[in-house]
Simulated scan of single mutants.
Amino acid sequence: MKIAVVGASGMVGSRVVAEAVRRGHDVTGVSRSAGGDATDQELMDSVLSGVDSAVVATTGVTSTVVLDAAFATRTRVIVVGGAAPLRTPDGTGLVLDDERYVPPHIRPVAEASMRQLEECKAHRADWVYLSPPALLEPGERTGSYRRGTDELLTGPSAISAEDLAVAVLDELESPGTDRHFTVASRVPAAG
């Protein structure tokens, strides 16, 4: 499969690239550090015209440009966003509005992920939005994870960037039915 990764040099994007290569896929990376501008509609149209799927591993304004290109080229897109749009496990509201998960200094980034999902919902492109759990950081690739829908998974609400990349590639290779889903690490067995 030919895959474009927007944000290919970031924490998530670089792991998605590595996982895709590990699985034998042909990857085209777009990143600011390599001189790529994901807000350049002509560039995105060109990049997506030759791929089967795309992954957006950036937050904010690039989503609409990539979604426009995906719609024009009939390319499926997975947008890796934030946890803010997920429902809280206790059903009281959104993660965005719960200071247990989103302290005030993180709120602007969380609000950007909310806008990103709203951009997806308003677009006609073939998109899927992946919300990581509350904690996402570099770590070990175990190759396993739990999958949920639009509610924050707990116990723990964490995943390594490497296992998030596994989930992204699993979704590309075997698409699920949910437009918005989340993943988290497997719960360790009680011992």
Results as ranks from 00 to 15, higher is better:
1 M>P: 11
1 M>R: 08
3 I>H: 01
3 I>A: 14
5 V>H: 05
5 V>F: 08
6 V>F: 06
8 A>M: 05
9 S>N: 15
10 G>F: 10
13 G>F: 11
13 G>D: 10
14 S>C: 02
14 S>Y: 05
15 R>D: 10
16 V>L: 10
19 E>T: 03
21 V>C: 02
25 H>W: 07
25 H>D: 15
27 V>A: 03
29 G>M: 08
29 G>L: 05
32 R>H: 12
33 S>N: 12
36 G>P: 13
36 G>T: 11
37 D>H: 13
38 A>F: 14
39 T>C: 13
42 E>D: 15
42 E>R: 14
44 M>R: 11
44 M>V: 13
45 D>R: 12
45 D>W: 02
45 D>Q: 11
45 D>I: 02
45 D>P: 03
46 S>I: 00
48 L>R: 13
49 S>D: 15
50 G>R: 15
50 G>F: 00
50 G>C: 11
52 D>Y: 01
53 S>A: 15
56 V>R: 03
57 A>Q: 09
58 T>L: 15
59 T>M: 14
61 V>S: 14
63 S>G: 01
64 T>W: 00
66 V>K: 02
66 V>Q: 05
67 L>P: 13
68 D>V: 00
69 A>H: 10
71 F>E: 15
74 R>W: 00
77 V>T: 15
78 I>E: 04
78 I>C: 08
79 V>A: 11
79 V>Y: 02
79 V>K: 04
80 V>L: 05
80 V>F: 06
81 G>A: 01
82 G>N: 04
83 A>V: 07
84 A>I: 03
85 P>H: 06
92 T>V: 07
94 L>Q: 15
95 V>T: 04
95 V>W: 02
96 L>T: 03
97 D>S: 11
99 E>N: 09
99 E>Q: 09
103 P>K: 06
103 P>E: 04
104 P>I: 06
104 P>L: 04
105 H>I: 13
106 I>W: 10
108 P>A: 06
110 A>R: 01
111 E>H: 02
112 A>W: 01
115 R>P: 00
115 R>Q: 12
116 Q>Y: 02
120 C>A: 10
121 K>D: 06
122 A>R: 07
123 H>V: 00
125 A>E: 03
126 D>G: 00
126 D>Q: 05
127 W>M: 01
129 Y>T: 02
130 L>N: 02
133 P>T: 01
135 L>C: 00
135 L>D: 06
135 L>N: 05
137 E>T: 09
140 E>L: 14
140 E>P: 00
142 T>R: 15
144 S>L: 01
144 S>G: 10
146 R>A: 09
149 T>C: 03
150 D>T: 11
151 E>W: 07
152 L>C: 12
152 L>V: 12
152 L>Q: 12
156 P>R: 12
156 P>K: 08
157 S>C: 09
158 A>T: 04
160 S>P: 10
161 A>C: 14
161 A>P: 10
161 A>D: 14
161 A>S: 15
162 E>H: 07
163 D>W: 13
164 L>R: 09
166 V>H: 05
166 V>M: 07
169 L>G: 04
170 D>F: 08
170 D>C: 03
170 D>M: 05
173 E>Y: 01
175 P>T: 08
177 T>H: 09
177 T>N: 13
178 D>P: 02
180 H>V: 14
181 F>R: 09
181 F>H: 06
182 T>K: 03
182 T>A: 06
183 V>W: 00
184 A>G: 11
184 A>D: 04
185 S>N: 12
187 V>W: 01
187 V>L: 07
189 A>E: 15
191 G>R: 14
